[in-house]
Amino acid sequence: MSRTAVIVFAGVVALFVVSWMVKAMVLADVSETNIVDAFMVTVAAFLTLAIYSFLYKDNPYYKFAEHLFVGVSAAFWMVQGFWTTIVGNLLPRLSEGLATWFQQPYQGGGYDLGVFVFPYSIMYWIPVILGSLLLMRLSPQGGWLSRWPLALIVGTTAGLNFVRYLRSDFIVQVAATFVPLFGRDPHPWQGFGHFFSNLDLSASGQFVALLSNWVIFIGVFCGLIYFFFSKEHTGAFGKASRVGIWILMITFGASFGYTVMGRISLLVGRLTFLFRDWLGLIS
């Protein structure tokens, strides 16, 4: 470590200790566990600052925070998966003793095949075996065995998605695109005379409602034409494809606007934490 790095490190440690002590004094009136609470708030604040230090340039404090995050997150998901699904759903079906030990209700019974009941205590060894085979991926020799559980995962995902996407994202969406182009409730079509004599541009008026329906119908149609690459985009087809691009550009513009909004919100959240919970600048 260079001399500068040592000085910076000493400065960070000193700042941490000072922050901890000051925070502990501030929290003394409101919390009995003020020393621990102050320590944890200071840890959270320093980890936040460590990540932000990347904005200046890559540095060991950022790398420390990044590596810590990877380690604790992986363990977090493993632990949650173990307690909620292995203990909550698997063990109580495998054995009454295990269910009792983990204080879970025993889930006996089985799959009724008509002739006899295939008990869960046998049936649920299938995911245990397949799950164990998945772990074989860590072994250089037995890696091919992990294809079996992978096949179940792939098969399940494919089977589940096939019907759901067909119904909700294809059939319903196509049906919803066939909107009335000449008005419906609350603006039923009463002829061109009525339409032009009552023409206005209010957000809830008939003109805007009709325009929306035209944009939706033509927009979806042209958008799909743009995605159709089996035919050259020339002539009328090309013009429709061009309209499709415009609709998609507006869509991406809207998405960009929302993305900016989302990213700023996260920053607001972190700065609010630093100013309120750590520094106490705001109430």
Binding site: A158, A176, T251, A254
Partner: peptide, 29 residues
């Protein structure tokens, strides 16, 4: 914009993706 052009664009993308998912699922199965 959100209710009309955005909806149209997103729906076109959604229909395209759904066709892709359906085809891929069949190919896998």
């Amino acid at each position: 914009i959100m209710n009309s052009p955005n909806l149209a664009g997103q729906r076109a993308i959604m229909i395209g993706i759904s066709l892709g998912v359906i085809a891929t699922s069949l190919r896998l199965i």
